[in-house]
Design a protein around this nucleic acid. Structure first.
Lengths: 339, 339
DNA sequence: TCCCGTTGCGCAAGCGCTTGCGTTGAGCTC
DNA sequence: GAGCTCAACGCAAGCGCTTGCGCAACGGGA
């Protein structure tokens, strides 16, 4: 039933080694024999066993992709584009979905990719300990988040400047009381995006001589529901903000929902600006900071392939992707305050 | 650098075979030796080579997941939950993203999972030829779409009845002119969902003695943008519908956007009902037919594991998941027609 | 004609595991 | 104390490839 290289060899009247060489396009096989072998292999429906091949050659033709929450739009999009690039180059994708802290811990302890992959693409920012574990695999590493990192090739965006774009837009519209929905729970995940975006927010407030109010800096857990709850909390403060910067479009959409439930209108009563340019941001008319999500996945995959192809793996390097503010209908000047 | 089973064996003063048995918890190893080996293995940071193990044993401990468009919410969600179940059971997930017809063709021709996986979970409905190719792998197969199929274990929903729920709701509200946004391009993908949902739509129209108008049955390509264009087309007809059934929430959201752009209000001017209960459906207040997406992924994965564990693989079987209409704010009775 | 460089192919030694079977020795029965 | 069973472990044969090396055969230059 399972046809092996030996079967092809005998059927073609040659040695297994010749079959291997022929099928891999390696030199040392005459053109006639090569086509003959190709035909026989096709007739028999032969497919080489990956296990045997990688055991013998050391190459697995597989890359590990480690991601949190594949269901989240951002990660799904990155994964989609990265997979396309990798599979086009002949690599298989081994997916590890390590969202929960438990799964993450288990993963980095057992390191199931040891001897299993030729390279790793990570959509989550490893802690120092995790980075060490990854580097110990001895394969090229690529990151789709964060900044430059020794041993890693990374592609990312300038989160801080993105936040500045968003908040400055609100300031320019005349807002002085600007809330932010981000998260405070990022530390254990070693995820710098929230703090970078917060830094941008604070920077712009500072420039505009607006005193930051900690009560306006709330946690939305980077989910739709969290964003809704965060917005609700903001509306419950003594002096609610006239504008809100949500660190992700998903949280921004949650915020929009909260506004609707409170019978407040956006942007008339409260302006909202998001981050990501989610596929549905356009649908709900959300002003947001756009980042090229799919391109980041593809770029990271391509950088990984470059390293895989290079004779001397040259780790490191950082590619920064462009971002831009996309104006839609969720932002407007604050309504004149009742005197 | 790479520590093999032999290294562990010599370090522990035993034979490789004993190490293998000890680490796999197989009988024939005394408790002392077992703990000793475990300690040595941990000290050396030993991880068995999957290639070697599967070559020798025949088991790969990986399952192939084949999906279209991982970026689409539905598939991302299914993948996420399925991965969780599979990895918890010790299986690795090999992801194949075969969205485009070209990628799909290439995939089924080369069949890269031959000898690579212990089972396959497919999120796309294979054609007869594709099903044949999959069955030829000789491993358990699980599907997250469609109905019962020989050789496959499948979990799905009653698409037809779901559509009936949606359309009947509109009829009950008093609508008589009801459009549908679906797709006509599903045939080459062998994707029965659109036609099933259409059947449900037509069925309810029939029950209500409403003559179906082909001009109200438009293509939205199951994307947000497609839905927007489809709605625009509907609004351009001589006599626009007062209500629309979109076969997916993503298309429904596109439709909502089109309405906004036309300065029409939902549900006052046009009612819209979707299908899926997308994470953001709640945000935009979309009435929709809910299906348990994550549960379907998890269920399919579990069924696959059952077959993998069973001594005698019993393929086949069909699990139908419940669906329900979720009433939100996008549907209302039609406004009285101007006499 | 002889010699040497190519080219084309086969041989065989692994790659690092798993597993059936054989061996050993301890503990038991009678 | 001889013979038995059985647990605990080692031996070695693969699993299906890859690849360095050896060996013909062939052709061209001297």
């Amino acid at each position: 039933m399972a046809v092996s290289i030996g079967d092809v060899a005998t059927a073609a009247g040659v040695a297994p080694s010749t079959v291997s060489r022929a099928l891999h396009g390696r030199p040392g096989v005459s053109e006639e024999v090569r086509t003959q072998i190709a035909r026989v292999a096709a007739d028999l429906g032969y497919t080489a066993s990956r296990s045997a091949a990688s055991l013998a050659s050391g190459r697995t033709w597989t890359v590990g992709v480690i991601a949190p929450y594949v269901g989240r739009w951002f990660f799904g999009e990155v994964l989609d584009s990265a997979e396309e690039v990798l599979s086009a180059a002949g690599f298989d994708v081994l997916l590890y979905n390590v969202g929960s802290p438990a799964a993450r811990k288990r993963f980095f302890e057992r390191m199931p990719l040891r001897k299993r992959v030729d390279g790793v693409l990570s959509l989550l920012l490893p802690t120092e300990a995790e980075a060490l574990a990854l580097r110990s695999l001895g394969v090229p590493l690529s990151l789709v988040v964060g900044g430059p990192r020794p041993g890693f090739t990374t592609v990312g965006i300038d989160d801080r400047r993105g936040a500045e774009l968003a908040v400055r837009h609100l300031v320019n519209l005349g807002h002085r009381r600007i809330g932010m929905i981000g998260t405070t729970a990022a530390a254990p995940l070693n995820w710098t995006t929230p703090s970078e975006r917060r830094a941008g927010y604070l920077q712009v407030l500072h420039e505009a001589r607006i005193a930051p109010d900690p009560r306006l800096d709330v946690d939305g857990r980077y989910t739709v529901k969290g964003g809704e709850q965060a917005m609700t909390a903001l509306l419950a403060t003594r002096q609610p903000p006239t504008a809100v910067f949500a660190q992700s479009d998903e949280m921004a959409m949650g915020a929009l929902r909260a506004l609707r439930l409170h019978r407040l209108r956006c942007p008339e009563d409260v302006s909202v600006v998001g981050f990501d340019d989610h596929e549905l941001a356009e649908v709900v008319g959300l002003t947001t900071v756009a980042q090229p999500v799919a391109k980041q996945g593809a770029a990271a995959a391509r950088l990984l392939l470059d390293q895989l192809a290079a004779p001397e793996p040259t780790a490191g390097g950082y590619v920064q992707m462009p971002i831009s503010l996309v104006l839609r209908e969720s932002t407007a000047p604050p309504r004149p305050q009742p005197a």
